[in-house]
Nucleic acid binder design. Structure first.
Lengths: 242, 242
DNA sequence: AGAATGTATGCTGTAGGCAGTCGACGACAA
DNA sequence: TTGTCGTCGACTGCCTACAGCATACATTCT
């Protein structure tokens, strides 16, 4: 249910095998079936997906371009696993990009867009009080996506999406769901955008994403992810699908 | 810290054919042998480079991930050709990123780095008064790269590099060589970084890159590049009757 | 016993080829 | 002329197969 649409708008018709394989692998990565640092053996993926190695290889190359997997010549593809430092830097850049998005959105606000934002915000708040974490996370993602789209700068939107993806939020689900405070910030942001006050909007967004960054870092510090730095290949049990 | 180039930092040993093919194609794109919008036929490249189609295909997939070529399923690869609008948005984002780089660089300036910056700046100014455009362009690129590296944020550096590449400056060589004024701005920037005045540094960089952006747009407006927009479907022109 | 070396095995990188598909071009009908 | 259909050529997408390499294991030497 994630709005992972916005990035690669190039693909219109996923008719080719390569594209469908890409989506399948991406799905496995997102839901965690393929874990960070895991070695992606082409043959296994090909067998499990019922295709040859070629489409798998090409899908992996494309995924590497989007930062989902790391390619090591002669060794194969590994699910990208951001270090704490990289995640920190990614979130810093995200703060920068999203603050600019908010500024541009406030520069020429659109009534329809504002209305959409309020709808999303209400849904998110409702999900929050209902303790529906999944819905709250979805609404949060939706709202941020809507704001960057309002900026009118497609490059900015694509880059923001790319950066956000590379963080791999599943390390810390709590970081994306900081409770009511987050939605109050969202509401204030929408007000600022509607009022056309770009400085205020940018500042609110900056502090908002900065809060998220802090939450992420704290959460990751508390739950020290077993860093899989293992660059070498490791034998694993047979099956992959799950 | 590895002083690795931001672009293709992943490749450590270009031992594989795929990597060398990638570099060859990239070279051809950069020097303009392969023009923007041009259709890259796999067989031709394979024959010219003396390899099979497979390494060529994979190299093209990797190049698409870095924004050098566009992949259209069922049609092949085309050299990326940014529209005026896209270039404008790219340069806007670049302004944002580089201003932040300057801010971070000024936050904790390093004596050695400052010295390097001044050397580059002197070389650039010398090249400028000697009317050596190539050298001036090179020094300019070198200086901006040095500043983003001083930010200490590798993600920021990589993204900046990626965004800058996608502009395809060769549309307008003049845009990268605005004369002495540009180098005076550079000098002021270095002063601000050395003084640790991050607000001033960010502001100088922002206005500097904004000037570049304006120059680019004006230059491109004066020299209307024959847009090779025809992505597909060159249908016969319809004669409007009535 | 520890270290060095030979061997085995799995995986990647590359080649070649076949089929499907898209677009161009020409013929034909309105 | 203009629109439509069928054919052709070219190119991509995909598969199979082989070669090369890297890692892990077994063996031998010191």
């Amino acid at each position: 249910m994630l709005a992972n649409q916005g990035s690669t708008a190039k693909i219109v018709r996923p008719t080719t095998l390569r594209e469908s394989v890409l989506e399948r692998i991406l799905e496995l990565i997102i839901i965690g079936s393929l874990k960070p640092g895991q070695h992606l053996v082409e043959n296994e993926l090909a067998d499990n997906l019922g295709v040859s190695r070629q489409p798998v290889r090409e899908a992996l190359q494309l995924l590497s371009g989007e930062g989902w997997v790391d390619l090591r010549p002669g060794h194969g593809a590994y699910v990208h696993s951001p270090t704490v430092e990289e995640a920190d830097q990614l979130l810093a850049v995200r703060t920068l990009l999203e603050a600019e998005s908010a500024r541009l959105a406030a520069r020429n606000p659109d009534k329809t867009d504002i209305s959409d934002l309020r709808d999303i915000c209400n849904r998110g708040l409702a999900a929050c009080v209902a303790d529906d974490v999944d819905a709250a996370v979805a609404a949060n993602s939706e709202l941020h996506t809507a704001v960057v789209n309002m900026s009118g700068n497609r490059v900015l939107a694509d880059l923001t999406s790319q950066v956000a993806r590379r963080v791999r939020w599943y390390h810390t689900p709590v970081a994306r769901h900081r409770g009511r405070a987050s939605w109050e910030e969202h509401a204030a942001l929408i007000d600022a955008i509607e009022a056309g006050d770009e400085d205020v909007a940018a500042d609110i967004m900056r502090r908002h994403t900065e809060h998220t960054r802090q939450s992420y870092l704290e959460s990751r510090a508390q739950h020290p992810v077993e860093e899989p730095p293992a660059p070498i290949r490791r034998r694993r049990p047979r099956t992959v699908s799950g």
